[in-house]
Write a protein that binds this DNA or RNA. Structure first.
Lengths: 222, 222
DNA sequence: ATATTGATTTTGGCTAGTCAAAATAGAGAA
DNA sequence: TTCTCTATTTTGACTAGCCAAAATCAATAT
C-alpha cells in the first residue's frame, strides 16, 4: 500500500496537472505546495518513478503514469465520499470537512468506502460540488462556465466551489454562494476587476461584488 | 500530538495493565504483542518515559503515568465510538469493525469525535459491549460475572464479548452469543473443561458447549 | 560462592522522509 | 560564443521506528 506521504504527493501532482494539462509539473511548484524543500521533492519523485507512479524527466518535471492517475482518483474518491459523510450524516460544517477528510482519506478501506457510498446513495458530487470518481476511476467530464465568463443577466446555478480553504468557504456561505444557489451576473468591469452579482436567497435576493479571480472559483450552469 | 505508533504502545500497555493491575508490564510480553523485538520495546519505553507517558524501571517494566492512562482512554473512546458508527450508521458487520477502527482511531479530531458521539446519542458501550470512556477519561466500573463463574440454571444476559478477533466474533454470532442475548448455564464440568449452555433465540432455544477459557470471554448479568 | 540461564539492554545498522547547503545544468543576456 | 542567473539535483545529516546480534544483569541452581 502507498504511504500517506506518497498519496499526498500524487494527489498534489494530479491537481497541478489539471491546471496545465499535458505539461510537466515542476519541482519548484510541487515542493512549494507540499511544503518541503525542492531537494526533497526531487528525491521523492525518483522514488515515485521507481514505483511507476510518475514519469520523471530530470530538470523538466513529472507527469502521472496511468497507475499514478488511478491512485490519485482513488484517493480523491475517498476524500470526497468522506467529506459528504461528514456533512450529511455527522452534521459537520461544509467549511471544515476538507481538513478532516485530508486525514481520514488515507485510512479508509475499500469495504468501508463502499459502505459509505451505499448509505449516501451513490452520490456523484461532494459538498463543494466536486465530482466523485467512480470505483473504476472514471471522472464525469465537467466543462462548466464560471462567474467570470458566463452570460450576463441570465439565471445561473452554482454547481461547484473550487477553493476549499476554510476561510474562503466561510465567506462563500456568508455571501450565499453555495452549490445549488441561483445567481445572476449583472455587470462586469474588467478595469475595476469587479463583478456585480445578484444572489437569490429564497424569495429575496441581495447583491454582492467580487473580483474576477474570486469569480473563477465558482462554477455555474444555466 | 502523539504518533500512531505511540498511541498503539500506550493502548497495549493499558490493556496489559488491566490484566494484572498494579504490576509492571514486562518488555518481553509487550514486545510480543506489539510484534517487535524486545530491544525495540525497550527503546520505545525510554522515549515514552521522556514524554512522561510511562514510568520505566529498567529490567522491571513500565506502568502508565496519569497522562499515559489519560491518552489510553482517549484512544479507547475514539476506537469504540468509531466502531459503533461503523455498525450503526454504515451497516458494517460487528465482526469486522475492530480492524477498521484500529486505523481510524488515530485520525479522528476532537470535533469529529463529538459529532459522532452526538449522532449516536451519547452511547455508553460499543457493539461488543465494551464501555466507552467519557470525554474526561472516566470509565464506568463494570464488575461483571462471566459464563465461567455465574450461577447455574439462572437466566443471564450477555453484556460484553472480550475477544475482538474476527474469527472469534464469527463464532460468537453463529452460536447466538451476542450482547443482549439471554443464556442459561446448565452445567459445568471442570475435568472435561466443558460448559453446557442453553441459548435463547427469540421463542426458541438451542444448546452449545464451550470450554472455560472461552466462557470467560462472555461477560453476563442477571 | 560460583555458574548457568533467560530476560533485558545496548550497539550498530536499515528505511522513509525530511532539511541545509554545495554542485550543476540550462535558458537567456551580453 | 561565453557569462550569468535561477531552478534543480546532489550530498551529508537528522529523526522515528524498526531488526539482528552482542553484552549485561539478576535470579536460580550447584
Amino acid at each position: 500500500m502507498p504511504s500517506k506521504t506518497i498519496e499526498n504527493y500524487i494527489k498534489q501532482i494530479y491537481a497541478l496537472q489539471q491546471q496545465t494539462p499535458g505539461k510537466f509539473v515542476h519541482m519548484g511548484r510541487l515542493a512549494e505546495l507540499m511544503k518541503v524543500v525542492p531537494g526533497t521533492a526531487t528525491s521523492m519523485m525518483k522514488a515515485l518513478s521507481d514505483a511507476n507512479l510518475v514519469d520523471y524527466e530530470p530538470r523538466a518535471g513529472v507527469k502521472l503514469t496511468d497507475s499514478g492517475r488511478q491512485l490519485a482518483l482513488h484517493v480523491l474518491r475517498r476524500h470526497r465520499l468522506v467529506e459528504l459523510l461528514l456533512v450529511q450524516m455527522l452534521g459537520l460544517d461544509w467549511s471544515e470537512v476538507h481538513d478532516e477528510a485530508e486525514e481520514i482519506e488515507h485510512v479508509v478501506s475499500d469495504k468501508l468506502l463502499d459502505a459509505i457510498d451505499r448509505v449516501l446513495g451513490r452520490p456523484v458530487s461532494d459538498p463543494h460540488g466536486d465530482p466523485i470518481p467512480s470505483v473504476g476511476g472514471q471522472l464525469p467530464a465537467q466543462k462548466n462556465m464560471n462567474l467570470a465568463d458566463c452570460p450576463l443577466r441570465r439565471g445561473m446555478k452554482i454547481v461547484r466551489v473550487l477553493d476549499q480553504h476554510q476561510s474562503f468557504l466561510h465567506f462563500a456561505r456568508q455571501a450565499g454562494l453555495l452549490p445549488g444557489k441561483a445567481v445572476v451576473v449583472e455587470a462586469r468591469d474588467p478595469h475595476a476587476d469587479a463583478i456585480n452579482l445578484r444572489i437569490q436567497k429564497g424569495k429575496k435576493s441581495h447583491s454582492a461584488v467580487i473580483s474576477f479571480s474570486v469569480a473563477e472559483k465558482f462554477l455555474v450552469e444555466a
